[in-house]
Design a protein around this nucleic acid. Sequence first.
DNA 1: ACAAGTGTACTAATCATAATAATACAGTTA
DNA 2: TAACTGTATTATTATGATTAGTACACTTGT
Lengths: 123, 123
Amino acid sequence: MISVDYKDKRPIYEQLAVNITAMALSGELKPDEQLPSVRQLAVQLKINPNTIAKAYAELERRGVTYTVTGKGSFINSDLSSAAKAQQSAAENNFTEAVMQARLCGIEKSRLLEMIGEAYDTDK
Amino acid sequence: MISVDYKDKRPIYEQLAVNITAMALSGELKPDEQLPSVRQLAVQLKINPNTIAKAYAELERRGVTYTVTGKGSFINSDLSSAAKAQQSAAENNFTEAVMQARLCGIEKSRLLEMIGEAYDTDK
DNA sequence: ACAAGTGTACTAATCATAATAATACAGTTA
DNA sequence: TAACTGTATTATTATGATTAGTACACTTGT
């Protein structure tokens, strides 16, 4: 389910974009499946339609969706570019985290331990 | 050297706090060593003294420094609480990065590879 | 005592970004 | 035609970061 978290410091439109991208990549949203309309989702989430529209524009810009004026926004069948971007971001983030941990004096062996746990957590 | 990066999205005072904390934990700043004065550092970095003051207040709140009005701000001899907080934050960050990577479909073996590289990078 | 240096406190103004609000327009569908 | 899509535009509000200017309490060296 599409949702927003007001405790999250990221802007709402960014949360929505990331959220929907994840749902598309996981298969929770199928190729060519139509997203809720801008106005409909705005009512459902109790936020402004402009904020939804901004999120949808971002999704199209990132290659996650395609849009037809008058019809709606739909999940792309080819998500490879979005998937690559997401993986690249995740790898950069991971590398940063490793270097940060090293600077804190955390041993490499400790990181190897933590991977074992974290990688198998459900969530 | 204490510096700020305007390409960084974090606020300046936060960058300064993190920067100085790292220098204290690495030993680049010795215990009881005096930090540059608020006004002096403001001139050096060409930013407002209030921003420096905010960073110094944060550092004291986080247990990195102690402050004597009229004298200045100095590095704490006991940095254990700051070190623990920093390590804890690094571990949380690392765990998040691992789970993000897993959600992107990155294999555990790939992460193990990357640790090998990232942990030995200089920077 | 004095002057110059410390950190601190306070108020106001400026700036950027996010979000809201209201409206209008172009295209699609039944 | 009516009701739905996304898009565009302008104005307004809210928030946080930063700047600006000033004032105060304390310490140090003369």
